[in-house]
Structure formats: C-alpha cells, structure tokens
C-alpha cells in the first residue's frame, strides 16, 4: 500500500480495471481501446461499462469478430504513435492471435535492432469454474511467458490490477494482461482513487509466514490465502507470495521466502504440465536447493480439456482443501 493512500475505497477487481483504463484514457490521448463489444456493451463481462460515454467511439472502438485482424492492426498502430489496449474476450482466443503476439509484437523491437517499439497492451481473461467448457475456460498465461519480448501480468487483487494495468499501458513493450473472470465481481479490496502504478516485475508477499511458502498466481492467490487460514488452525504458518508478473519474474522475492520457510508449493490455474508451476519450481530448486527440507510441490489445472459438467469441472482446478492437505503433508502434520 502506498503511504499516501488517500481516499481508499473498496472496489471490485473489475471496477479497478475500469478505473485504470479511464484514468489512462484521460491522461494520454494516444490510448485507445479496441475489441469486440467494448463500447456500448462494455464487453461481455461489463468491465468497460461507461467508458464509451466519457471517451466516445473514437477511443473505445468496437471491432468485428476478427481477433487476429484487430490485434495485428494494434501492433502496427503501437509502432506508429498510438498506445492501443486490445480486449481479447476469452483467454482461449490467445490461440487465434498467437502469430500477431509471438511472431510480430514480441519480435519487432529485437528484429529491428531496437529501432521500432510496440507499446501495446493485450487484456484477456483466464479461469475456469464458470461452466463455460473447454474453449472458454483455459488459463493460458504460460504461452506468452514462453516468448522473449513479451511481458506477462497476472494480477490477483483490485489494488494490483489497477496499478499494474496503468504500468502496462505506460510500458514501451507489448504486455499481455490476464484477468481472472471470477475475480471481476467476487474479489474486492482497497484501491486508492488517485494515480499510482505497481512496477512490472516485483512480487508481493500477500501473507507472512514461517513454515511453508505458497507461491500462488492470479485466481490461486485467494485459494492460497484461504488455505493459509485453515493451516493456521492446525499450527502451520504459511507465507503466500504472489509473483504478480510471469515475466519479468521476481526470482529474488520467491527465493528469499523459500530460504526462510524451507518448504515451497506452487499453485497456478494453468495446466499442470509444461507450465508456470514447473518454471517457478525450477527457479526455487536451482536457487534454494540447500535450504529446502523437501522437494518443491506443485498444484495446477488437471491435464484435460476443461469439462462442462460442474462435477467434472470442479475436479480440474486446485482448491483450498487441496492446498491445505498437501501443505500439511509437506510439513508432516
């Protein structure tokens, strides 16, 4: 929290996103929003509601259902003087825009020897348990994190969401910004009314503890905090560390926490295999091996397409109970 956090209000995660966009639209005329149903509809999630009334249809621009087209257009616009913010309704549609993201936006600066810049933000969503089935439920933040040239942001609180989104819009690099759909309305927290940014590449310790480090991202931060409360009741003190950005990754904060607690679990809603948990676990193992009392453990989404039926879908995502039980086992209690 900033020292001069005047006018702290409770906002939802979605309201914090909207406030960040409104403030940046007001601050910089080069900022434009592009996406499907972003104007009067305010997106399918109503997160942008009200922006077109203040900023008009020249700044909040409805596009055809044409993700590669308008994302590609935004890359070129970013190179030539604009600061576009693109809205990709569902993270699953990252698959549609991957050439524009991975082969164009990410590489323009390097391929041109540093001459062209791409100050572009791609906002998209992640998170299951909305009964939306296999093509509207994935958490694909590991994909862009694999590509050099991109920054990847995964905020978990309203405060972080506002500050990081403003930082992303002011960044001269392409930033992919993942918002958890469930958090939009469900997660509330204090947010300063004024201008502030949260630096990209700095983790945040969401809860201090002594016995085990729970590294958790996005939607899983709330899960880890819930599990930490349960663990406290059985005498285990859990520290919860939120990396906040996948790349750059604040390795120092992660490693320092694990050196203190000597146990580490990584919890992420992306697929368990070849993903975020594997990467973070390897960072911890490489840098804190001799401080560990046991192997780094991981919880991620089950390696299946996200199913529709609630009883099936709920079996694919880590829960507070899963984190609690694994942590107890790791602490031998």
């Amino acid at each position: 929290m900033p020292e001069t956090a005047t006018a702290l209000r409770e906002l939802t995660f979605g309201e914090a996103i909207r406030e960040a966009l409104a403030e940046e639209l007001r601050r910089d005329p080069r900022v434009v929003l592009l996406g499907e149903d972003v104007a009067e509809a305010g997106t399918a999630f109503k997160v942008l509601k009200g922006l077109v009334e203040e900023f008009g249809k020249d700044r909040v621009i409805d596009t055809p259902i044409s993700e590669p087209g308008f994302t590609g257009l935004a890359v070129g616009a970013a190179m030539t003087g604009m600061r576009p913010v693109v809205d990709i309704m569902f993270g699953d549609f990252m698959a549609l825009i991957m050439d524009q993201v991975a082969n164009q936006a990410a590489k323009v600066h390097y391929m041109s020897g540093g001459k062209w810049k791409v100050p572009l933000v791609i906002r998209t969503t992640m998170g299951a348990t909305r009964r939306s089935a296999a093509q509207h439920s994935q958490s694909l933040h590991a994909w862009p994190s694999h590509i050099p040239g991109l920054k990847v942001v995964v905020p978990s609180t309203p405060y972080d969401a506002k500050g990081l989104l403003k930082a992303a819009i002011r960044d001269d690099n392409p930033v992919v910004f993942f918002e958890d759909k469930i958090s939009y309305a469900k997660v509330k927290g204090p947010v300063p009314a004024g201008d502030y940014t949260v630096p990209i590449g700095v983790a945040d310790v969401k809860r201090l503890g002594r016995d085990i480090t729970l590294v958790a991202t996005s939607s899983m931060v709330q899960v880890a905090l819930g599990a930490a409360t349960m663990l406290e009741e059985v005498g285990i003190s859990a520290e919860v560390v939120d990396p906040r950005t996948m790349w750059p990754l604040d390795e120092t904060t992660l490693v320092e926490s694990v050196r203190k607690t000597s146990r580490a679990m990584v919890v992420d809603e992306g697929y368990y295999r070849y993903g975020v948990t594997g990467e973070i676990a390897s960072v911890i193992a490489e840098n804190a091996f001799y401080d560990l009392d046991g192997p780094v453990r991981r919880l991620g989404a089950r390696h299946v397409p996200v199913p529709f039926s609630p009883v099936l879908e709920d079996a694919t995502v880590p829960t507070e109970r899963d984190v609690f039980e694994l942590a107890r086992k790791m602490c031998n209690r």
Binding site: L73, A74, A78, M82, S112
Partner: peptide
C-alpha cells in the same frame, strides 16, 4: 516498418500504421 518473414505478416502492421 519492417520486412516480414511470415507470409501476410505485414497486413496487420501496415493497416495499423494507416490507423495511426
């Protein structure tokens, strides 16, 4: 704005430059 080795790769960038 750059030569592009993805066939059709310049379409988005050129159109975006026109947008700007």
């Amino acid at each position: 704005l750059g030569a592009n080795a993805i066939v059709g790769g310049g379409a988005g960038i050129a159109t975006g430059a026109a947008f700007s």
